[in-house]
Every structure is written in structure tokens, then in C-alpha cells.
Amino acid sequence: MNPTEVIDVSREALLATLAISAPVMLIGLGIGLIIALFQALTHIQEMTLVFVPKIIVVFVSLFVFMPYMLTTLLDFSATLVDRIIALN
């Protein structure tokens, strides 16, 4: 395996990681911004007001996006296995 192939596999791994984590991270960011806006407007500075809704929304989004995440990971794994088989 030459350095170009190693860089290509590494790039694909990073893109797969971003594709898998992006939906949940963006939803977490969105709900965090909404809660921060609510806190700024109402002057409520309760710490549990931030964490509890964000945890609930992130867990729900994990269940919603799990098929997409699994498909992306399986596609990457299949591509990686095909490359390993092609080395022999």
C-alpha cells in the first residue's frame, strides 16, 4: 500500500466520521442555541435547563439517525474490506 492510498483511506475515514456525527452534533448545537436564547430572554440561569433538554434531544436524534449512521458505517467498512482484499 503506497502513501497515496493510505491518505485516501484516511480521508474517507474522516469523511465517514463527519457524516456519521454531523446530524447529531448539528441538532445538539441548534437546541443549545434555542435554550441559550430562551435563557437570555428570560434571565433564567439554571444549569439543568441546558443539559436535560439537550440530552433528551440528542438521544432522540441518535435513534432517528441510527439507520443512516449504520448505513454510512457499513458502506465505509465494505469499501475498506474490499481494499484489504485487493492487497493480496
Results as ranks from 00 to 15, higher is better:
48 T>C: 01
54 K>W: 02
72 T>Q: 13
24 V>R: 00
46 E>F: 08
23 P>F: 05
38 F>L: 14
34 I>Q: 00
18 L>I: 10
80 L>K: 03
33 L>F: 13
70 L>P: 04
4 T>F: 14
13 A>V: 05
77 S>F: 11
9 V>Y: 08
34 I>H: 02
48 T>M: 10
40 A>Q: 04
30 G>F: 02
41 L>E: 08
73 L>W: 10
3 P>F: 12
84 I>H: 04
22 A>H: 03
22 A>E: 00
50 V>A: 14
67 P>E: 00
54 K>Q: 13
78 A>S: 11
26 L>K: 02
16 A>T: 15
2 N>W: 00
5 E>L: 15
55 I>P: 09
66 M>N: 07
41 L>T: 10
62 L>F: 11
45 Q>R: 10
29 L>T: 04
32 G>C: 01
53 P>Y: 02
10 S>H: 06
82 D>A: 11
46 E>N: 09
15 L>A: 08
69 M>H: 00
60 V>R: 01
63 F>C: 06
63 F>A: 11
12 E>N: 12
14 L>E: 00
72 T>Y: 01
28 G>E: 08
6 V>F: 14
32 G>Y: 03
42 T>P: 05
74 L>E: 13
23 P>V: 05
53 P>F: 01
15 L>H: 11
61 S>L: 02
31 I>A: 04
7 I>L: 14
5 E>Q: 14
78 A>E: 10
54 K>A: 15
35 I>C: 06
53 P>H: 04
34 I>W: 00
87 L>M: 11
47 M>E: 08
81 V>W: 10
74 L>K: 12
64 V>F: 14
30 G>I: 06
82 D>E: 12
43 H>E: 10
38 F>A: 07
6 V>G: 02
54 K>Y: 01
3 P>W: 12
25 M>A: 15
17 T>R: 03
3 P>Q: 14
31 I>S: 03
35 I>V: 15
88 N>S: 14
3 P>L: 13
76 F>K: 01
1 M>N: 07
16 A>W: 00
13 A>S: 09
35 I>Y: 02
80 L>P: 00
75 D>G: 13
65 F>G: 07
41 L>Q: 09
36 A>G: 05
6 V>K: 09
57 V>T: 08
23 P>R: 04
6 V>R: 10
2 N>I: 02
21 S>H: 01
77 S>W: 11
4 T>C: 05
30 G>Q: 05
1 M>D: 10
33 L>G: 09
61 S>E: 00
88 N>W: 12
43 H>Q: 15
50 V>L: 14
14 L>S: 09
42 T>E: 04
1 M>E: 10
3 P>V: 12
24 V>M: 05
52 V>S: 14
85 I>E: 11
25 M>Y: 06
40 A>C: 04
22 A>C: 06
23 P>L: 01
56 I>D: 00
50 V>P: 05
